[in-house]
């Protein structure tokens, strides 16, 4: 028999406008390059929805945005950022600088402070001074520039690894030496690939495919990294920064 008290006050089951779609993203800044990566699995609960849903997007020749969290919000957010960047191009006849994109993203996220885009953003690229940069955001727009950041389902697995490998946390340099301030591109790519193979191994929401975007500062070459399999150039101009994407497989189980 139904509980009379619950009949007196009709219970409300509110519609939940959010979900989590898994996956992980990360970005690492070098001295004159930036690497932004994400897996391509999209899931809900224990189900894989698709093995290929990109989470990393080229915004300009010097800016790449990785978006992780609620996929519908993520796609809409990227769509709106791209639209704002196009308007900027129409108004100013140039691409928006990276740090301006970062502030734009914070403004757009905070505009939805009371119905947030449920997404963690990582913006990577090249600053106007030619340095590699990574900006990371929380869903309501708090942001800072960093050397590296992981976000998403396997953040808790990957970030400590990056802290150790990039920031050399808990490592003591050999006497008379010091840790390097920036790592070279091949080392960074190895760390990225290892991060994702490891996350794939230990986290059920990570896997299927890996997309690594590489942004190079003006004049810098890939030296030594060209040979990596599945690389494709996405640059649209020939006198500025260059963008590449590397597509690799991850385990599908």
């Amino acid at each position: 028999m139904p509980d009379m008290a619950s009949l007196a006050h009709p219970q409300q089951r509110a519609f939940n406008p959010y979900t989590e779609n898994g996956g992980t993203i990360l970005a690492i800044a070098g001295a004159d390059f930036s690497v932004i990566a994400g897996d391509t699995r999209q899931s809900e609960g224990y189900s894989i929805q698709t093995r290929y849903a990109p989470k990393v997007f080229r915004l300009t020749d010097r800016a790449v945005l990785a978006v992780n969290g609620f996929a519908a919000d993520g796609n809409m957010f990227v769509k709106k950022v791209k639209q704002r960047l196009e308007w900027y191009r129409h108004a100013h006849a140039k691409d928006m600088p990276l740090r301006a994109i970062a502030r734009l993203i914070q403004t757009m996220l905070y505009a939805r402070r009371f119905f947030p885009y449920y997404v963690y953003n990582i913006l990577g690229g090249i600053e106007e001074d030619g340095t590699g940069a990574v900006y990371s955001f929380d869903p309501v727009g708090s942001y800072e520039r960093e050397a590296c950041r992981a976000a998403g389902a396997a953040q808790s697995l990957v970030q400590p690894f990056l802290d150790n490998q990039i920031y050399f946390k808990n490592q003591v340099p050999a006497p008379g030496t010091s840790h390097p301030a920036h790592l070279p591109l091949p080392t960074v790519l190895s760390i990225v690939i290892d991060s994702f193979t490891s996350a794939t191994e230990r986290h059920i929401e990570v896997g299927d495919g890996l997309e690594i975007y590489i942004v190079l500062a003006k004049g810098r070459t890939l030296h030594g990294t060209e040979s990596i399999g599945g690389m494709q150039e996405l640059t649209t101009t020939d006198d500025g920064e260059r963008v590449f994407v590397v597509r690799r497989d991850l385990k599908k189980d």
């Binding site: 959010y18 809900e44 698709t50 609620f70 996929a71 519908a72 796609n75 809409m76």
Partner: peptide, 21 residues
């Protein structure tokens, strides 16, 4: 695929509801 949350994706096989499981 599109659902009530606006979640979208494409794949070579798709199934909704119980079919997804």
């Amino acid at each position: 695929f599109v659902d009530l949350l606006g979640t979208t994706y494409t794949a070579s096989t798709l199934a909704t509801g119980y079919g997804a499981y």
